[in-house]
């Protein structure tokens, strides 16, 4: 088993390399020019093309893509993510203060997704084709199909502007930087929206898994033994039904991250998602590469952790058996 995970980790590094190679190439080929993107036309009208070329040379943008990628990779291996073309600050310094807001948003969203998605999925499965099942299905379809920014803006106007029960965007109220309750209040709306959007697929998975288990032979056997419905449900069905859900949870991470990009933009939440939007806007490839590297690593790690948890929870799965 140790060998299996060692192999998984090595493969993850190769995958991560592939991701950065593809991302770097795509970013380099994308239309737009980081030098020109920074200048407003008024300023541009005063610069000669020689001056523009000089800026491009200073930033190393006049070299071929493979060489630029090689330099970038060599720096990254030495722990240097490079500098943002736009701000001139080290990438690590740009990303550092944004990790915590992003992590808090994501953790809050995962909790909401679990607390909402799991019980409702079970409820749906137990009452399969019942009224509550149809109602919950309708709600999940609505959540899955409505764009996050629409949900965000509607929530902002309903709970923030009209009802005044929650703050309208930002990380905290200015002057209350250390007030934990204030921070939680600010976290509630973006966290809940991101969580609900991801609770919907989680609920669908849970329902499907539970339906399958409920119709399996051992559940029928347990019922036939005369066990109480609740005992069958919790002890026999639920435990087994949750096993695949663990994997699904691991794979939800990339969706969560993608959703966070939008949620953070709508709520002015100073996390990595917002930073990546800034970086894309400004055609700041080094900064965008930093974000992609960190997010890619986090997603790969989460899928390995999910597989590991899977093997721990389900004794039938031992990755190296029979070898």
């Amino acid at each position: 088993m140790g060998a299996y995970f060692l192999r998984r980790i090595l493969i993850a590094f190769v995958v991560l390399f592939g991701i950065t190679l593809i991302a770097y190439t795509v970013l380099s080929l994308a239309p737009g020019d980081p030098v020109l993107a920074r200048l407003d036309p008024e300023q541009l009208s005063r610069m000669t093309s020689a001056q523009v070329d000089q800026r491009r040379h200073e930033l190393g943008l006049d070299q071929p893509i493979p060489i630029r990628y090689y330099h970038w990779l060599a720096d990254v291996v030495q722990g240097n993510l490079g500098f943002s073309i736009v701000s001139g600050r080290p990438i690590a310094e740009e990303m550092g203060p944004r990790l915590l807001p992003s992590l808090s948003l994501l953790s809050f969203a995962v909790i909401v997704a679990l607390v909402v998605g799991l019980p409702l999925g079970i409820l749906s499965a137990v009452h399969q084709y019942g009224r509550s099942d149809y109602l919950l299905s309708a709600i999940t379809i609505f959540l899955i199909s409505t764009p996050t920014f629409v949900l965000g803006l509607v929530a902002l106007y309903v709970f923030g502007v009209t009802l005044r029960v929650l703050p309208v965007g930002d990380l905290y109220t200015f002057g209350k930087e250390r007030d934990i309750l204030d921070r939680l209040a600010h976290l509630a709306m973006p966290g809940a929206i991101l969580g609900l959007v991801n609770a919907a697929p989680l609920m669908r998975y849970t329902r499907a898994s539970m339906v399958e288990v409920l119709s399996s032979d051992y559940v029928t056997t347990a019922r036939a033994k005369g066990l109480a419905g609740r005992v069958v449900l919790v002890r026999h069905a639920l435990r087994n039904a949750l096993i695949p859900v663990i994997t699904v949870l691991g794979y939800l991470v990339p969706d969560l991250v993608a959703g966070a990009v939008i949620t953070e933009t709508v709520f002015n939440w100073p996390g990595l998602g917002q930073l990546s939007v800034h970086a894309a806007n400004d055609r700041d490839p080094a900064l965008l590469m930093g974000v992609i590297l960190i997010v890619g690593a986090a997603v790969l790690l989460s899928s390995i952790v999910a597989d590991f948890a899977y093997s721990v929870v389900d004794p039938r799965i031992r990755y190296d058996q029979g070898r």
Binding site: Y251, D255, V261, I262, V277, A279, N281
Partner: peptide, 22 residues
């Protein structure tokens, strides 16, 4: 290897939102 797709998906989302933001 669905995780590849997911990661690329996340990266694409970043780019799309960036483009919309423009």
């Amino acid at each position: 290897m669905r995780m590849h797709r997911s990661i690329v998906g996340a990266a694409v989302a970043v780019l799309i939102v960036g483009a919309c933001q423009g």
